[in-house]
Design a protein around this nucleic acid. Structure first.
Length: 502
RNA sequence: AGCGGCGUAGCUCAGUCGGUAAGAGCGCUCGACUCAUAAUCGAGAGGUCGCCAGUUCGAUUCUGGCCGCCGCUACCA
């Protein structure tokens, strides 16, 4: 039995949930469900990042306290994930006491180990923004937001000695060939390390909405170092060392490519500085693009998951997102493509298959299901579909996994076309053909469960099985021949109604 | 500019650690079927695997160059 601790980034509460957030969260949910199907111990973590200047600002604008602002937006993320059937095991908020404890513990260890020191931070400061800007961000020497001249300011900050970790980080890359996948992002992360690392300022005195530095209460930790630590917090760091020892070695971070630097360079260095082992593993994905524009930063095209789920269904959305957007490269995201995928794979494919099988069963033998043929030609298809599906999930390629699973759907349709059960008289041959089709549906319901849990449970129910495919245990559950004769099969409304294109 | 990535059928994408591997789905054309959600099944058309050169018995797969697109370049999560 394995152990898997999957994480999403924690989402910043100055923004409401959109498909960019949902993409990472759905992939994590499906991966977690796939592992649970194997009886593995799984801990799936998501949450919200609630400190920092932007939250303080948003709160002021809305006439709220920062905590109220955080409460309000954090709730919207939980609602979005509940709507999408995200089975998270923990939802962490960085304003929780357990997180304060973990951040203070982790960074105090870094401090005690000599990797944190006080120095003066100097930079271009915009008084209106109350924020520093890098020279490159300035527009003709002016603040990019207000257009006013910036001032050279300086303040005392604590710095993290990132520069001390270059060699150890490179050793980590050397020792762990799959520390970051896909490989393209591993290369990018390694290039960042090789390119040279400068120390980082990790505290602020100009800001109140943050976690206080334990050895110097005038400072709060800068929000990134607060945020990254959430993964350790949730595993029990600083509050439950036994629990931490159990889960930390199993940690796998899912993240978008835009935050590689923070996750794949800064975070491992912080862990090294604090003496935490081992290093996490990282699974990095690209962006969903809408007409070539990154969804997360193009406010006009921000799409709320709810709006899509309303028109194509929760499982329609889950399936399409996972199937059509390979985990790794950037991919195009469009409503038309979602609808197309729902109609072809779900309505015409799985849904229609279920409908034709249950219809024929309902017309014969009083709706009672029959047993499959141990020597069915579909047995080999089911076996290879499972193997290929499992291999793809293991490589963190949900789109490929679903493609492989759907081979069984397709070949079952071919099989029915070939045997023409609607022409057969009641008897052994008809029983065998229907038994085979029901068995194929049973196996598909298990293999597809990570992507479309709700629909698979309904398939399970309609073919007369007890419980839920979530309770099935792979790889045994994929073995051909387990559908029991004598169950009552239910004919219902189409499982996935076709979606109109407009 | 430096560093990094991407470029495979109309579309969305797999794949090749160099050799019968040029693939899938969708879309399209023709045909079959009618149990089923105008669904299903079969056949077919469609690509010099961005361009050029090199290494090799052989490259889409390796190396170099070029073209096109994109990301990062540090305190904006």
């Amino acid at each position: 039995m394995g152990r898997y601790f999957y994480t999403t980034p924690i989402y910043y509460v100055n923004d409401v949930p959109h498909m960019g957030h949902a993409y990472t969260t759905l992939n994590g949910d499906a991966l977690a469900r796939w592992r649970r199907l194997h009886g593995d111990e799984v801990f799936y973590l998501t949450g919200t990042d609630e400190h920092g200047l932007k939250v303080q600002r948003a709160a002021e604008q809305n006439g709220l306290s920062p905590q109220e602002q955080a409460d309000r937006t954090s709730k919207r993320f939980r609602e979005a994930w509940d709507l999408l059937d995200i089975a998270y095991d923990d939802f962490i908020r960085t304003t929780e006491p357990r997180h304060h404890t973990a951040v203070q513990t982790l960074l105090e260890r870094c401090y005690e180990n000599g990797y944190v020191y006080k120095d003066t931070y100097q930079g271009a400061y915009c008084v209106s923004c109350e924020a520093y800007y890098a020279e490159a961000d300035l527009i003709d020497g002016n603040c990019p937001i207000h257009g006013f001249p910036v001032e050279q300011m300086s303040e005392d900050n604590y710095f993290f000695r990132l520069s001390a970790f270059r060699d150890r980080l490179l050793e980590w890359f050397e020792d762990v060939p799959d520390n970051i996948t896909p490989e393209r992002y591993r290369n990018e992360a390694r290039a960042l390390v090789r390119g040279g690392l400068e120390d980082l300022s990790i505290t602020r005195t100009s800001l109140q909405w943050g976690i206080p530095v334990p050895w110097d209460s005038k400072h709060v930790f800068y929000v990134w170092y607060d945020a990254l630590t959430n993964y350790a917090t949730a595993a029990g760091y600083g509050t439950d060392e036994d629990r931490f020892a159990t889960w930390w070695p199993a940690v796998r971070h899912l993240l978008g490519k835009d935050i590689i630097r923070f996750h794949c360079v800064y975070w491992p260095a912080m862990l090294m500085a604090a003496g935490v082992e081992p290093m996490p593993r990282f699974h990095v994905h690209g962006w969903l693009l809408v007409s070539g524009a990154k969804m997360a930063k193009t406010s006009v095209v921000q799409i709320a998951p709810r709006d899509l789920a309303d028109s194509i269904g929760v499982d329609g959305l889950r399936y399409s997102v996972l199937r059509d957007n390979p985990f790794g490269p950037d991919s195009d995201f469009s409503y038309e493509a979602l609808v197309q995928r729902c109609n072809s794979d779900l309505a015409n494919g799985l849904g229609n298959l279920l409908q034709r099988v249950t219809t024929i069963v309902a017309r014969s033998d009083g709706s009672v299901g029959t047993a499959p043929d141990p020597g069915s030609p579909l047995a080999a298809t089911a076996a290879s579909a499972y193997e290929a599906t499992a291999a793809a999930w293991a490589r963190v390629q949900p789109s490929v996994a679903l493609e492989e699973t759907w081979r069984l759907v397709r070949e079952t349709n071919e099989y029915l076309q070939d045997r023409q059960p609607w022409k057969l008289e009641a008897g052994a041959e008809l029983d065998t053909v229907l038994g085979d089709a029901l068995e194929a549906l049973r196996i598909v319901a298990v293999l597809a469960h990570p992507a479309i849990p709700r629909s698979c449970a309904e398939v399970w129910r309609r073919i007369g099985l007890d419980g839920d495919p979530a309770q099935a245990r792979l790889p045994e559950a994929a073995r051909w021949g387990q559908y029991p004769a004598g169950r009552t099969v239910t004919l219902g409304d189409p499982l996935f109604p076709r979606v109109a294109v407009d």
